[in-house]
Simulated assay, not measured.
Amino acid sequence: PAGDESLFILNSGIDQGLRLRDLNHDGRCELIISNPDRQAVYMWSEQNSEWQQLSWSLPADALIVDAKGRDAGLRFVDINEDGLDDALFSNESRYSLHLFKSLEEGWKTLFEKQRMGAGEVPAISRNGTNNGAWFHSKHLWVQNEDTVKLKHLVAGKSFAELMELQGPQPKSPSAALESIQVKPGFHVELVAAEPLVQDPVAFDWGPDGKLWVTEMADYPLGVDESGKFAGRVRYLEDTDGDGTYDKSTLFLEGLGYPTGVMSWRNGVIVTTAPEVFYAEDTDGDGKADLRESLYTGFGEGNQQHRVNGLRWGLDNWIYLANGDSGGDLLSVKTGEKLT
């Protein structure tokens, strides 16, 4: 590799998980190293005549060898039959499938699971040794002392069955609508869907017919699990009066896990711990340019337990909930501490 870095097939007689593999089947092998101390992938640079490390690697828990250099349970095989090498990992305690996308993106995890019971992926390795696993006719097969009592003396999963282990997939808007069951006399209509709105957690109608929506695009660990906020407030409009929203306007962005929105005066009230604030578009461009903090000090615990649920009561008060997050509340306008 570039620089002073050295890679070894063996270190003190221990297999380091160094493999050559043509991941994208372009006729040129990539160099993969995978052990508990190192996960990396390199491609050969003709221009520089050296191995250059790529920006991605195998997932942290999908290893070729364990700390003792033994078979950890990973195999490269084209599970989804797209001509690229996917990574199937399976040992006595867990299993996962990672689909290869490209040399720019690497593998994308389809599922990762702990062993719980029947119907799971057969173990490829067990206690550091091959568990009698091989691939044939679009199946993973396992034959060992545990399978001798089975009807065909082997255990297996087809590639199609492996793909299905990812669990239920998102439905299209029309399919989701058809799946909703209501009592006789009621019906459900689709008024908005992606891409007009994404990750909605709360909504409220304004007197002008706008549908205000908070979107928690940063749940649960921020953008790319970096902690960066990406919550949004947008409003939807039905511009042609057909009962379906057809226009979406981003009103606010960069919020930290927004949980509630309520149409109020010329703008909206938004809950996003530790704050409840009012936002308004004063120049008519659809973007909030006025933001006024009303209350602060709400607890920032579990995102699902934060201040939320703005409701206008019959007594003309606005009510909200705060889960079990607590906090030391303060009225920003008056300076009064609330208990």
Rank of each mutant, 00 (worst) to 15 (best):
A2Y: 12
G3W: 09
E5D: 05
F8L: 13
L10G: 02
L10C: 01
R19Q: 05
L20A: 13
N24D: 14
D26I: 06
G27V: 03
R28C: 01
L31Q: 02
I32T: 11
P36D: 01
D37V: 09
Y42P: 05
W44F: 15
S45W: 11
Q47A: 12
N48P: 00
N48A: 13
S49H: 12
E50R: 15
Q52Y: 07
S55C: 02
S55G: 04
S57M: 05
A60F: 03
A60I: 09
A60P: 01
A62H: 11
V65F: 08
A67F: 09
G69F: 09
A72S: 08
G73R: 10
R75I: 15
E81W: 05
L84S: 05
A87F: 12
L88M: 06
L88R: 01
S93G: 00
S93D: 03
S96F: 08
L99Y: 10
F100S: 04
S102Y: 07
L103C: 04
E105I: 08
K108I: 08
K108H: 07
E112G: 02
R115Q: 04
G119R: 01
G119I: 05
E120G: 09
V121Y: 08
A123C: 08
I124V: 13
F135V: 13
K138I: 00
V142C: 10
N144R: 11
L150I: 03
K151E: 03
V154T: 07
V154C: 06
A155P: 00
A155Y: 07
K157H: 05
M163C: 08
E164S: 15
L165R: 10
G167H: 02
P168M: 05
A176F: 12
Q181M: 06
Q181P: 00
Q181K: 15
P184A: 14
V191R: 11
A193H: 10
V197E: 00
D199A: 14
W205C: 06
W205G: 06
D208T: 11
L211E: 01
V213Y: 01
A217G: 03
L221A: 10
V223F: 09
V223I: 13
V233H: 01
R234G: 07
G241A: 12
G241T: 14
T244C: 03
T244K: 13
E253N: 15
T259A: 08
R265K: 15
G267Q: 08
I269P: 00
T272L: 03
E275D: 14
F277T: 00
Y278N: 02
A279E: 04
E280R: 14
L294P: 04
Y295M: 09
G297L: 10
G301F: 03
N302V: 01
V307A: 15
V307G: 08
N308A: 15
D315K: 14
D315H: 10
N316A: 12
S325K: 10
S325V: 02
G326N: 07
G327V: 00
D328F: 14
L329H: 12
L329I: 02
G335M: 07
